[in-house]
Design a protein around this nucleic acid. Structure first.
Lengths: 253, 253
DNA sequence: CCATCTTTGTGCACGCGTTCACAAAGACAT
DNA sequence: ATGTCTTTGTGAACGCGTGCACAAAGATGG
């Protein structure tokens, strides 16, 4: 999971649980695929399989939106696509700015998934004057000095931060001051924002570390307790026990 | 949150809750920063603030690892860095392959966060023959045909998929067949994998959609109940199609 | 050596999320 | 119209994660 809520700790937004909201885009994607194949209806079982979730969970999720299914038949694909889109706010157009046009920022600018779902890249912003005017994904990069003006002129409320960690908080502050109230943060830093501003975090490194944890565990298990910890082997006295012989060779006094 | 567990639904890996594992990298980052500033010890309160979490939660998290603190003083920074690194398996070197060297793949290859934390990009793989041999981030791209050989020669157990959605499952199958047991998926698809293989998903589009949901809610609230649903107002006969243009002109009764 | 003060480690309670299992609802055939 | 069959919608139970609040542990000063 590359994510982390920041604000709104567990607030159910208008009765719809956070966990459900997080799954709606998943359902929407599966439904869109069905729609493109002109499938008229789908059962909770089929859709759940396509979205990779439990069918009971899916039904309960939909029940928060209302009773949109027909017993004995299933759900009308087109109708459900519309309902979920509306619930997620994708029936309107969201102008988005991307700040920090490095490798990642450029990748984001080129990412088709945005435009296809109601998000429009209103501007690309970078601090490097040399980047200014250079087109990325067909959009000319603008300098950071223009940030406030861009936000206001375009009525941008969602900002994406793809800058180095060091610049993130500062950029964040400027975005918020200019009126942005939702931020998607790719920089490996904890951003602090005032109440009312949502931050979601995507951290590539953290995801890999979580995988490594499970990977290590798998490796340790199959190797048996003895050769469990590669690192432990380098430890002097050790007295290694368990999969995580944690005895420090030299305790910090 | 750009994430989603796939396997291992709620399995506590050897007593450490998933939620805790997911926060360990966060703590590690904060601790590393302290370490670089040569701070010797830190209290749960301070560290929690730096990591953006509750101090009680942090203490409880650490308690799963063992009693590494000193009452009245706090935690030894260096020692904790070591313990968490070891727990996450970062004391060993993880060779990683990145498949799909488009904009995103290139960004990942250039991402410094990998190398700095025990991850080594063993190879870049792309299906486009024109890419073969071309260096990205100093590493020559190799063709997909070499995939199995690369995995085996380098003992790769972690794979990153940054291909288009259409190719993802196929690439995934080949990775798994060749011996990869952990996958970080950036393609917007649900991957199916056999038992014992972990998949973590990072989906840029989903994160934005979740933000849009809250953004819409904020906008609706301040506008009052009347104009609550922007889309709903135009609904009767539609005409207004969202970005997806999926509004059914006639609601399915 | 004792008192005080700081900070950890954790027992406990609460709430969210997940899952099961089933009754209610509707389609469809006869 | 009636019965059967499919599938939804949800009540209820359970488990995980979070946060409070406090006792235990140790440092520090006199």
């Amino acid at each position: 999971m590359a994510t982390g809520r920041t604000h709104r700790p567990a607030t159910r937004s208008r009765g719809i649980p956070e966990a459900t909201v997080a799954r709606l885009p998943l359902y929407l994607r599966a439904l869109t695929a069905l729609s493109e194949r002109s499938v008229p209806t789908v059962s909770s079982e089929e859709l759940a399989a396509a979205a990779g979730v439990n069918s009971a969970k899916l039904r309960k999720d939909f029940s928060y939106l209302g009773s949109y299914g027909t017993r004995g038949v299933g759900y009308d694909v087109e109708y459900l696509v519309y309902q979920i889109s509306r619930e997620l706010g994708l029936t309107q157009d969201w102008p988005v700015v991307i700040v920090g046009i490095g490798n990642l920022g450029a990748a984001l600018a080129n990412y088709g998934g945005f435009a296809s779902r109601g998000f429009r890249v209103a501007a690309l912003i970078d601090a490097d004057p040399a980047m200014a005017g250079k087109p990325v994904a067909g959009i000319p990069v603008q300098h950071t000095d223009e940030l406030e003006k861009i936000i206001q002129d375009n009525g941008v409320s969602i900002g994406v931060i793809a800058t180095p960690a060091g610049a993130a908080q500062q950029v964040c502050d400027r975005l918020v001051a200019a009126g942005v109230t939702s931020i998607l943060n790719f920089a490996p830093t904890v951003l602090s924002v005032p109440d009312g501003v949502d931050v979601r975090k995507v951290d590539l490194s953290i995801e890999l570390q979580i995988l490594a944890f499970h990977e290590q565990r798998k490796a340790g298990e199959e190797a048996g307790a003895a050769a469990a910890h590669p690192a432990a082997a380098t430890r002097p006295d050790a007295a290694d026990q368990g999969p995580d012989g944690d005895v420090p060779a030299v305790m910090p006094a």
